[in-house]
Amino acid sequence: MDTLNNRTVFITGASRGIGRAIAIACARQGANVVVAAKSDTPHPKLPGTIHSVAEEIQAAGGNALPLVLDVRDEKQVRQRMDEAADQFGGIDALVNNAGAIRLTGVENLKISRYDLMHQVNARAVFNCSQAALPYLKDSEQAHILSLSPPLNLDKKWFAQYGPYTTTKYAMTMLSIGMAEEFRRYGIAVNTLWPKTLIATSAIEFEAGGPQMMAHGRKPEIMADAAVSILGKSASELSGENLIDEDVLRAEGIDDFEHYRYEQGEKSLMPDLFLE
Rank of each mutant, 00 (worst) to 15 (best):
E204K: 12
A170I: 02
K110L: 14
N152Y: 03
S129A: 15
H118M: 09
Y164S: 07
A188L: 10
L151F: 05
A122P: 00
S112D: 12
F126G: 01
M171E: 15
L145H: 05
A202D: 09
C128A: 13
R184T: 12
A179P: 00
S201A: 14
T104Q: 15
F205R: 09
Y164M: 06
N127T: 10
I144V: 15
T196S: 12
V106R: 02
T200W: 02
E204H: 11
I176K: 13
S201I: 04
N96W: 06
Y169T: 04
K168D: 03
Y169V: 01
A202M: 15
R113W: 05
P194H: 10
D154I: 03
C128F: 05
Q119M: 05
Y135N: 05
N127H: 14
M173A: 15
Y114D: 02
L103V: 09
A170F: 01
G89I: 11
T172F: 13
S146Q: 03
K155I: 13
M117T: 09
A98N: 08
T167Y: 07
A188R: 01
M178Q: 10
K137W: 07
Q130V: 14
A132L: 05
L103I: 12
A98I: 03
A131L: 11
G177V: 08
L94H: 04
G105H: 02
E204T: 08
L116S: 06
E107T: 05
E181Q: 09
M171F: 00
A122K: 00
L136T: 00
D154M: 07
S148P: 00
W193K: 10
I111E: 12
W193E: 04
L151G: 01
V95W: 00
C128L: 09
D138E: 15
S139Y: 00
A170N: 09
R184W: 03
Y185K: 07
N108L: 08
N97I: 10
F158L: 13
P149V: 10
F126L: 14
S146K: 07
A199S: 15
A98L: 05
L136N: 03
